[in-house]
Write a protein that binds this DNA or RNA. Structure first.
Ligand code: FES
Ligand code: FES
Lengths: 144, 144
DNA sequence: ATTATTTCGGACATTTTTGTCCTTTATTAA
DNA sequence: TTAATAAAGGACAAAAATGTCCGAAATAAT
């Protein structure tokens, strides 16, 4: 469904949101530990999130990553997914046609558009804030 | 969503079904041409389908691949997917946890189980026969 | 029997994804 | 100013997925 990079991105963004709610910037090292991901690779992922203005990065001592609570409200999962994995989840075809296309649909097109639309809706409505609250309330977890 | 190998497998199986309805065995070369896939790689995929008793292969002149119309009725998409991609689509976690787990769910677990269940249902109810009929009726296509 | 055809299967090659290492740049604090 | 800290980013490495090549095995027709 998502690439590893995207999985790390989502988990990292949730952790950063969650820490920022408590006024704490977090470092790469903390993030990688918390979401159980390889440090250097996670760094690359975070750079992409930074360039896409999803997270804010601050260099130097007492620096780190943060996401203002104000914007955590507005950031949807879909923004993270497209930043890392591109828009294949939106325009791609389940059977690998260049683009999903109503005019010349692949064999599973009509079965899949329903599910894909549900997925789109989910990604476009779920915010980082929501996900971070679930973590805070102990109903979901960042690692197993 | 699916691996390339699985995409080829699904398309190949549909084409074989469709040809078998008309009493025609098809060769690897015909299949690869029809579904627009690399020949040798498609051969590997077909070998897996053969070992999983999803398609029937006959060596030698006038040999090729076939799927008895009788069984095309019973073969579900899910069988092909699990034969090629394993059961990650059923047990895997959207964010890469070892297994999806209600007791220690990942941050998107509750959002995704609905969609995954829909996907499961779809794969478990869609038969090769149905898909091959759509091809036959010209409402779906094997290549773009 | 011989030959031609077609799948099987092992070995290898390429590409993509994932992961690592190390230097540079920015920033803070002493 | 200097030293310490932390992200940025380039280069490289490993692993996985995808793709190719070629000979072996089975089968049918001649
Ligand atoms: S054409 Fe394949 S999913 Fe739409
Ligand atoms: S635990 Fe991640 S999808 Fe269920």
């Amino acid at each position: 469904m998502f690439s590893k990079a995207c999985e790390y991105a989502i988990k990292a963004a949730i952790f950063i949101t969650s820490s920022s709610e408590e006024g704490e910037r977090v470092s790469l090292i903390q993030i990688a530990k918390e979401i159980d991901s390889p440090e250097a690779y996670t760094a690359k992922v975070l750079q992409k999130l930074t360039k896409n203005n999803i997270v804010n990065s601050i260099k130097g001592p007492s620096g780190g990553f943060e996401i203002k609570p104000k914007s955590a409200n507005k950031i949807k999962l879909s923004q993270i997914v497209t930043a890392i994995d591109g828009d294949s989840i939106y325009n791609g075809c389940a059977l690998g046609f260049g683009k999903c296309n109503d005019q010349k649909p692949c064999p599973v097109h009509f079965q899949f558009i329903g599910i894909r639309n549900d997925l789109k809706a989910l990604l476009q409505t779920t915010t980082l804030k929501t996900l971070s609250q679930d973590i805070h309330n102990g109903i979901t977890f960042l690692k197993q």
